[in-house]
Design a protein around this nucleic acid. Structure first.
Lengths: 194, 194
DNA sequence: CCGTATTCTCTACATTCATAGAATAACAAT
DNA sequence: ATTGTTATTCTATGAATGTAGAGAATACGG
């Protein structure tokens, strides 16, 4: 009997190599030959695991989104109110090398999503998730049905998305410390509208 | 003597066709043949005006940035304080078809800038401009050297950038009205920290 | 040590596309 | 009209790259 490979695990490995590659080089530089080489294989070896380039990209984006979500679930779900919001935002904000790379991938992803409705839908689903979480935590903090809860929620999300972009494009002007300060300002404003 | 073409004007025309093309189809779909056709020319005709595809893209991005800047200068520069900030933000926020298209281009641009330091530098220069403007207006509104002016400024910029992304990727959840409400919330917070 | 199922390598093919450059057309001045 | 210069078209070339698939390599049960 032949060499046996755990296909799911192999797929996982490939996806991890892919996301690192994209974070480092960008999607435009990603071709299947170089990627296979980076994963330690040769030209056609990835095809059995991902039939097309697009399938691989989609899996990679899902992987990154999942990683963020899992961190949120691990660190924010057990908290309430403003503390939960802070923990959530800290998992999303690009404060360390890992999350900066995730932000880079996110920007690439948004660009692709402009042309592919399926990717845009995947993104919209994540945003829905975020809104649901924030609604709960803002409800705990401000009381249910606070008049401004919706604006606060959406502007916080927009702030987080903008931070992903600016931290990656204009790193000098957007240190982690600066982002944390901005987040604190947002949270402080929460107290003022209570 | 031969047919005379105003090269600058021709370049301008080409850039305008290009930005409309990108807004409609996305950068990935943009190839020089189709673009030339859209501009009413045939295959190689654009080369004398823009030697390479990249040169054309760069000119197009500069054109869009200039357009926004000019609107800001026309509408916000004669105002002061919070009113100026509001006018500025309204020129940047994707509130109508034109600005939604500009947001689309911005997302494409950010994606490219991840791989090309020159484009990132161009973006950083615009962000510097924005910061300078906001510093002035925030100074007028909050008084010079207000302790939180920096956070407010940067978080406002991040909000504006995030709004560009979310309005284009998740249009259903980010109507113009919603964005205006979020902006008003930001401005209202300005009053509270005075 | 052999046979077989699976994995992987490697070459090849098809397509897309930017770019070059020769050929042609358009035009103004003489 | 003729001519010379510029503008534009059109075909060709070469590079990059996704994808396919034959065959080699591999690992494992007998």
């Amino acid at each position: 009997m032949p060499k046996i490979v755990d296909h799911d695990q192999r797929r996982q490995e490939i996806v991890e190599v892919t996301w690192r590659f994209i974070a480092r080089e960008g999607i435009d530089k990603l071709n299947l030959r170089d990627l296979a080489a980076a994963a330690g294989y040769s030209n056609g070896a990835l095809k059995p695991y991902f039939p097309t380039r697009d399938a691989l990209l989609e899996a990679t984006f899902n992987f990154v989104a999942d990683a963020t979500n899992k961190r949120v679930e691990a660190n924010a779900m057990r908290l309430r109110g403003a503390l939960a919001i802070e923990a959530f935002a800290c998992e999303v904000l690009p404060l360390d090398e890992l999350r900066i790379n995730e932000a880079r991938i996110a920007v690439h992803f948004w660009n692709l999503a402009l042309a592919e409705p399926e990717l845009a839908a995947a993104n919209a689903a994540t945003m829905d998730q975020w809104r649901t979480w924030l609604d709960r935590w803002l409800g705990q903090e401000l009381g249910e049905r606070h008049a401004q809860a919706t604006f606060v929620r959406d502007s916080l999300i927009n702030f987080l998305m903008g931070a992903q972009v600016s931290s990656v494009l204009d790193m000098a002007a957007n240190s982690g410390q600066s982002l944390v300060d901005q987040l604190k300002y947002h949270l402080q404003m929460l107290n003022r509208i209570k």
